[in-house]
Structures are given as structure tokens and as C-alpha cells.
Design a protein around this nucleic acid. Sequence first.
DNA 1: CTAACTAAACTGACCAGTCAGTTCAAATAG
DNA 2: CTATTTGAACTGACTGGTCAGTTTAGTTAG
Lengths: 230, 230
Amino acid sequence: MNTRGMNIRPAEPAGKELRPARTNATRQKLFEASMELIGERGAAGVTVDEIAAAAGVSKGTVYYNFGSKADLIAQLLRHGVDILKARLASTGTGTSAGAGMVPGEAASGSGPRPDPLLAMEAMIGQAMDFMAEYPSFARLWVSENWRTPSEWQDTFAVLRAELLEIIGAAIESVAAVYPVDETISRGSLETAIFGACFVVGLDRQTYNPERTRNQSVAAIMAIMRGYVVK
Amino acid sequence: MNTRGMNIRPAEPAGKELRPARTNATRQKLFEASMELIGERGAAGVTVDEIAAAAGVSKGTVYYNFGSKADLIAQLLRHGVDILKARLASTGTGTSAGAGMVPGEAASGSGPRPDPLLAMEAMIGQAMDFMAEYPSFARLWVSENWRTPSEWQDTFAVLRAELLEIIGAAIESVAAVYPVDETISRGSLETAIFGACFVVGLDRQTYNPERTRNQSVAAIMAIMRGYVVK
DNA sequence: CTAACTAAACTGACCAGTCAGTTCAAATAG
DNA sequence: CTATTTGAACTGACTGGTCAGTTTAGTTAG
């Protein structure tokens, strides 16, 4: 294990972006380069030398900024999930107050409520856009997510829970307004939608580039329409 | 490239199982061992030595029976897909006539017709059983399927098409009997169901072992219920 | 001034693929 | 029935190369 990088690096004093601009730029370049390479050939199939070269940085810099290859990948996963979470939250379906905020159910007088199904559709659309923009992240996710045991088991458990919580909240909103099939387990439903987003997005990228964003969204939304009882 | 094994090995004269029993047993052991290991740690993360040791066979035997590590994995994929196809076809939803026929509603002249939705449900159930029985195969599939470029690109394209054809036929049967939402692209729908089977099955295995087979099937079936118009 | 970074050499482990040699069951010969 | 041969199946030490991670002495930029 490397101890030098971890020790010398300024302790990131619990605050946010107090890092020098140069470091942030370097880390960003490393994220982009490794996202691309690892998405294409897998975590084990890419060397640290390659990542450094692709980022236009020396190998030592990788170890200066990250303690190890595994550490770089763990932070890469967190980075990607933060982006995805921001996209999903932007539709206002999440738990925290997003853009198109929805007040309580009983007429609280402050504006019209958006249809939760439409919000869901918007969220799935955001997910599809994310998959199209960061296909390498999606590939990394599905490649490593179900590995057991894996170096990133704990990382995945945390990140997965964060994402499922957002989807769960959106489903909750639908269930609060529409009559739904209560025999369908909420957890399984979240998983099915979550997984369908990744798989449909990746499949479009890899095998069916001619399929439109809307076709993909519609296919996934069939799950929700089947959840709402007739 | 290894030439010896390929040349010396009897030319497998287009027939079926003319292979000596020893070889078949060895190949079977190698399939099982490599399925397990590769599913856990990924194709690049497993060494040929490990596979040989796990199969209780020497490394040379691997190269005698398969030309290379990549070749072994390609044949492993084919092996797994053949098993899955057999399971799916057993529900009678495929192109060929299968076993468990379900008495249906519109009585046609030639015996009872199965309800295509029930057949679909049976098929998804078979898929879930397969994922539970061969989780390592599922992991291998999702790990390597969307890699581009990959050593098994062509293999995946062929196998994927074979599986999607079976799902497509099942959807076709439903659309022939029920009114469906024609605005939903058939291809995207196939992909969504296909992907959901893998992801829900794997997620159950990895994160939610307490979820039942039926819960999983029900969640995936929501897609079909949403496809059938109300 | 110092944190961030560079460049290049180095270590030690690991690994895909090779190949000369061994085993043994079945075929053939005596 | 026994001896000999054959060759497919298998063995495992070995080779050439790769790679994660380390180290060091110096350079750059804020």
C-alpha cells in the first residue's frame, strides 16, 4: 500500500473545494481519462500508465492524487453517481427540494401539482441522457456492481442505496396519487426500473443507436403504467 | 496462437457427441470452474492457472481443449446461452412448440390455447431460476456484454440475437391476443425485459436475497401489463 | 516558499502461452 | 490370451513479458 500520497496530501480539511485549482483540474482530467478507458476495457484491463498518459499527466501524479488504482476507481464511482444524482434530482422527484417542487397533497394553495407520472417520465429521460453522455460510467457500473467479493463492495452498496432512494421517492409520489398494484414489491420495482435504465441505455449505445431517446423512455415507462392499476 | 491442440484434436466430424468421454468430462469441469471464477472476479481477473486448478486439471489441458483463454470464454458464453435458451423454450413461448400448455380463453378448434401473458410469466420465471442457478453466468454477461471493442463482440451479437428472438416471439404472442400500445417500440421493449431479468436476478442474489422469485417475476411482468392497453 | 507535479528507473509479483515429456486405454499383432 | 503399438489426453516447468506501486532528484506554478 502507498502511504506517501495519503500522508503528504493536505488533509482536505472537511471543507469543500479548498483545493488548489491545479489539483482539481488534474483530478478532473484523470476522472475523464479513466472513465473512458475503464468503461471500454474494464477496471482490470487498463493500466495506471495508460490512464496517466491519456490524462496528459505523469504516473507519479496519479499516485500523488490517489493512493492507489483501486482508490482512483472508488472516487470515480462516487464522482459519476454525484453527476447522475444531480440530474435525477433536477426533475423534482427526489426527496430534497428540487426544481419543480410539489407542495402537499391537500390544496395548499401554492400552485398546480405536477403529475407524478410525468415527473417519473422526466426522470427516466434524464437517466437516458446520462447513459448517452457517460456510457463508460454505465459500463463500469454494470461490470463491477454485482461482483462478489469486490474491492468496491461497500462503495457500491452506498451509492446504489442513494440512487434507489431517489427512484423510490418518485415511485412513492406516483403511489400517493394513483391507485397502484400493492402486490408488487416496492423494492423489486425500484430495482427493475433502475436496471432497465442502465440496460436500455447501454443497449441503445452498443447495438441500436437508431433507437430514439423517447422510445427508450416509453419502454421503461411501461413498467410504471403496469404498476398503476387499470 | 496454439496450433497443436486444434490440429491434433479429432476434427469433431460435424456430428454431435462423438468425443471421448474423458474430454467431455474435462470440458464440463472447465466450464463449471471458469464460470464460477470468472463470474466472481471478471474475465481479466482470473488466471488460467486458477481455472485449471479449480477444475482439477493441469494448465496444459486448458490449452489442449481450448486454443486460448479468450476461446474458453467464448465457448463458455455459448454454453450458458444454450442452457438459458433451453429453459426459456420449455415454456412453449418460443418459436417451437414446448411443454406446459395453459388452457386459455378463446376456445379454438385444435385444443386449448395458452394465455400468452401466463406463458410470458412462466418464461420470466424460468429466467429468474436460471439467474439464481447460474449467477456467475449472469455476471459474466453483464460484465462483458457492452464492452466495445471486445474480444467477444461477435459472439455477443449472435447470442444476444438468439435470446431476443425468443423474447420477441413471446411478446408477439401477447400482441396477437391482447390490445397493446403500438407506440411502444417492440425492440426497446424486448431489451427492457431482457435487461430487467438480468438485473433483477442479479440484484436479488447480491443485495436482496430475501426477495422471492415471485416478487421478482411480478415486478418484471409490470412491463408487460403496461404494454397491454387498459 | 511550498504544494503540485514530472520523468525515469526500479522492484517484485504475476501471468498467458509453450513444449518436451508422460500416461493409459484401446487397437492390433503374435 | 499376452505383448506391442498408437495417439489422444494430459502434465507442469519454463519463458518472455507486463504491471502496480515505489523512489528519487528535480521542475513548475500559485
